[in-house]
Nucleic acid binder design. Structure first.
Length: 882
RNA sequence: GGGCGUUUAGCUCAGUUGGUAGAGCGCUUCCCUUACAAGGAAGAUGUCGGGAGUUCGAGCCUCUCAACGCCCACCA
């Protein structure tokens, strides 16, 4: 056995020197590995896969900490706990990174070709793949690395193909020309949820379109004049008297002279702009809908790069111009031809690509879609049936609102990095086959589009468990997973898709609970982002304060309502200080365990203080278990902090110092000290894994497990219930605090001797008698004398009323009587005020009649108690005066 | 235009079935008492955003107003 000289341990906790060693110890002993053959009940979580090229940020830190906490807690509570790690290929994001690298070398992907580009991207991904999960080690993540997955690996790809083909066969995937959000920079379609809207200051241009073959014109208003060359009609509201006579007539598009009709459609708002709307079906979603209703032919005038097409409909001067340049030039040309009537400032919402922030170009194009409504039905039912619950509950509404108004999901991306769509076209006939494999590579060519990244992420809870092989051990043991932990920002992107896909392909909800935590923000409440430069690097925080400090601080800031969490560097001092406190208190306990045996606590030898701390420990264990089960993580942290610091350190350890000097109870005190420390470390372990493991390893004695992370999590034990002693100790603490208050407020120096006389009630006297040494040491009292309850009070004395007893401190010549009288008067005033308010309630007949009996009784009892104290103080004051 | 959230001590925020307010930091005073100064002890500080209502009783429930923030929505 390793011998440790506890006195040599540093007085400040050094997280950096212990953490990596501890993590290695866990890995070497395969502590994170889950056994699918285990008889224990399963508990499983799949990590929200971080981007393969990503680096760890605070959002990961909170997310991973919460998952690890739940995993560790359940592992210690008798579950076979599996946490599946992995990364996401992150289609657009990763492709963007690699393309950027190419650009720096003056190349682009088209020069390389698809095959070479993918080779390069795979290389890049493989190099970075492990990095973010390695960073998670610094967070203490106890995931099972032997089960690490990647959304583009063989298993996930098989799952994707299986799902795609099945959905297609069921008619839930279709291909067609629809208007989609097109990112001209990514050169791809993106889905609705990947489009973010921003209010921008723009203009509303009013443009005059002349009538054909007759005088007169109609003036339309537009925010995008460059699209006018793609106009297919002008629409007005059928009830708009201004334009009634123009419906059916033909107008001429300025600058190009192409003729288009004036049509009537109820969509048009009479009050907006001029009440006349130009219709560009190929470049606006609403116009597309109107165009469909009126059989208008879409005319493409902007290409996939956001440049004006070189086609007959577009004036030659604009060919190849960027859409914004084209806009300026169009306006100038219109002005020159006197077709521009008016320009007004106009704020409007502009769609942006979530990934690169480029303004979206709505574009009519051939894309693949998932028909969502049939899938959403079951996902909505899941909530009604209580099969899936959101924590906090309010997110349910958000989820349902989206599901109930679901729109089809555009899943095709014109990228190269991703799951290539398993559709094959006949080289000659163009006939399309959707299948898991190419029916005949010599005759068929695969669809070039790839799938939206979230398509494979949506299968994550079961693709990682071996699905489509439903006989897989992991799938049978660990699916469905136990909980999904994530931020609210990806409810639509990810959570919703996992739920719909989970039901469709496994017939089950992928998880019964979605635990949504708040987002991490900077100290001013701003979202953290690289571009704003306000990010805090979790690894930097770990280096500076330690992992446990980071984890404890973050969890303590989690609220039941899932509010966003504001952090700043200094906030982590909170956790750092707590870790240091744990370290030092433990150091003290370890230093004082010399000679302790392996026997359990001897109940017959317990002192009142021992019973009190065991009772408190019990209460804490009960609360901690309840709170974790209800995802009240912040509360859990606070309870443990409070118990360890305020109960164990501030009171019990101080009292233990006294008991350790008493040979008769020394041994049992050591056992209690050790037991409470051991149990508290176990309860803290899911939150602060490193420091608890490192101290636990140093605790002397036999252990049932090799690591704290494998030990049993404490639960409520009826063995150590001591409610009476718990109450009595409150009286003792009150007494000590009162005596300290006397010393402080009357400026009695530490060096001055202080004796006390206790005039206790019959009931309270034995309590005081049992704790004389505590009073002497903790309140710095010399002699403790017991007097009759009604013994006269010495003139020059300070005093304290505690419970129903009086403590007198004779201080002849040491105190200013007037000051003491003032002090007592202040106390009396406070008591009387409180008593008065309670009496007011009791005097209220309605209160007595309506309030529950217990409340009324409690109030009466409290008044009586306050009365006793008030009387006692009054008596003391008059004897001081007399 | 809908929906959600926030408003509590100087600062950052807790506060689960309604019973009269808490923590951390900061502040004041004292203390290096042989675990810890990243510490110990004793304190001070709040008409719980405004208004109305329900109730014996409201930080908590209802309505309303205000400010700030977020999400969703096709108004050119």
């Amino acid at each position: 056995m390793k011998t440790i000289n506890y006195a040599d341990l540093p007085t400040t906790y050094d997280a950096n020197s212990t953490e990596s060693e501890i993590y290695k110890f866990w890995e070497e002993n395969e502590c994170f590995k889950a056994d699918a053959k285990s008889k224990k009940p399963p508990y499983s979580i799949v990590i929200p896969p971080p981007n393969v090229t990503g680096i760890l940020h605070m959002g990961h830190a909170i997310d991973e900490t919460l998952q690890d906490l739940l995993i560790r807690y359940h592992r210690m509570s008798g579950y076979e706990a599996l946490w599946v790690p992995g990364t996401d290929h992150a289609g657009i994001a990763t492709q963007n990174v690699v393309e950027k690298k190419l650009r720096e070398k003056g190349q682009n992907r088209h020069q390389l070709g698809r095959e070479k580009f993918l080779e390069l991207t795979w290389k890049w991904a493989n190099e970075h793949k492990g990095a973010i999960l390695d960073q998670c080690k610094r967070l203490g993540a106890s995931f099972d690395r032997t089960r690490e997955r990647f959304t583009l690996d063989k298993g996930c790809s098989d799952a994707v193909k299986e799902v795609f083909v099945k959905l297609y066969e069921k008619g839930l995937i279709y291909k067609g020309a629809y208007i989609v959000n097109w990112c001209p920079r990514c050169q791809s379609a993106i889905s609705d949820v990947e489009t973010e809207y921003e209010t921008e200051a723009g203009h509303l241009w009013e443009i005059s379109y002349s009538l054909k073959d007759e005088p007169g014109a109609i003036v339309i208003a537009t925010t995008r004049p460059e699209t006018m060359f793609g106009d297919a009609a002008i629409a007005v509201n059928p009830t708009d008297y201004k334009y009634k006579d123009l419906i059916g007539k033909t107008v001429v598009i300025p600058l190009t002279g192409r003729e288009i009709p004036i049509i009537a459609d109820e969509y048009v708002d009479k009050k907006f702009g001029t009440g006349a709307l130009k219709i560009t079906p190929a470049h606006d979603p609403n116009d597309y809908e109107i165009g469909k209703r009126h059989n208008l032919k879409p005319i493409w005038v902007i290409d996939g790069e956001g440049k004006m097409k070189a086609c007959a409909e577009v004036p030659a001067e604009l060919h190849g111009l960027d859409r914004y340049e084209a806009r300026e030039k169009t306006v100038a040309m219109l002005r020159y031809h006197n077709d521009l009537i008016k320009i007004t400032d106009h704020e409007h919402n502009v769609g942006k690509c979530q990934r690169c922030h480029t303004t979206i170009e709505p574009l009519l194009s051939e894309q693949w879609f998932v028909k969502m409504e049939p899938l959403a039905k079951r996902a909505i039912e899941a909530i009604d049936k209580g099969e899936i619950k959101f924590v906090p509950e309010r997110w349910t509404k958000n989820y349902l609102g989206w599901m109930e108004n679901i729109r089809d999901w555009c899943i095709s991306r014109q990228l190269w990095w991703g799951h290539q769509i398993p559709a094959y076209y006949h080289n000659e006939t163009g006939e399309m086959v959707v299948a898991k494999e190419n029916p005949d590579p010599s005759k068929y060519t695969q669809e070039t589009d790839v799938l939206d990244t979230w398509f494979s992420s949506g299968l994550w809870p079961f693709s990682t468990m071996g699905w489509p092989n439903t006989d897989s051990e992991d799938f049978k043991k660990f699916y469905p997973t136990s909980v999904l932990v994530t931020g609210f920002d990806i409810i639509f992107f990810w959570v919703a898709r996992m739920i719909t896909m989970g039901y469709e392909f496994t017939g089950k909800a992928p998880f019964p609970t979605v635990y949504i935590h708040g987002l991490i923000r900077d100290e001013f409440g701003q979202k953290m982002s690289k571009s704003k430069g306000n990010t805090i690097d979790p690894v930097g925080i770990i280096d500076k304060y330690g992992c446990d400090a980071l984890r404890f601080t973050l969890t303590s800031l989690c609220t039941y309502g899932g509010q966003d969490i504001k952090v700043s560097d200094e906030k982590f001092e909170y956790g750092r200080n707590f870790a240091n406190k744990i370290w030092n208190a433990s150091r003290f306990v370890l230093m004082n365990l010399e000679g302790v045996d392996d026997k359990p606590i001897e109940k017959s030898e317990l002192t009142i203080a021992d019973k009190w701390i065991l009772h408190k420990l019990n209460a804490t264990a009960k609360e901690v278990n309840e709170n974790i089960k209800n995802y009240r993580i912040g509360e859990t942290s606070h309870i443990l902090y409070d118990f360890f610091w305020n109960d164990y350190c501030d009171w019990y350890v101080e009292i233990a110092k006294i008991q350790l000097r008493d040979e008769k109870i020394k041994l049992n005190t050591q056992r209690v000290l050790r037991y409470v420390l051991d149990m508290t470390l176990r309860m803290l372990h899911p939150i602060m894994p490193f420091i608890t493991e490192s101290i636990w390893q140093m605790i002397p004695g036999e252990k049932e497990e090799i690591a704290i992370m494998k030990s049993a999590f404490p639960t409520f034990s009826a063995d150590f219930e001591y409610p009476a002693e718990n109450e009595e100790m409150e009286l003792v603490f009150e007494t000590i605090k009162s005596l300290r208050n006397v010393r402080q407020s009357l400026n009695i120096p530490v060096s001055t001797q202080m004796d006390i006389e206790i005039r206790a009630t019959e009931k309270e006297k034995p309590v005081f008698e049992a704790v004389i040494p505590y009073l002497q040491r903790l309140a710095r009292v010399q002699e403790v004398i017991f007097e009759a309850e009604n013994a006269p009070v010495p003139k020059k004395s300070a005093s304290a009323v505690v419970g129903n007893s009086k403590i007198i401190i004779p201080l002849a010549g040491l105190i200013d009587i007037d000051e003491e009288i003032a002090r007592q008067n202040k106390k009396l005033e406070k008591i009387n005020k409180e008593k008065g308010s309670l009496e007011g309630r009791i005097k209220n007949e309605k209160f007595v009649a309506n309030a529950p009996k217990e409340v009324v009784e409690e109030t009466k009892a409290k008044i009586a108690e306050l009365q006793v104290q008030a009387d006692a103080i009054s008596g003391l004051i008059s004897s001081l005066k007399g």
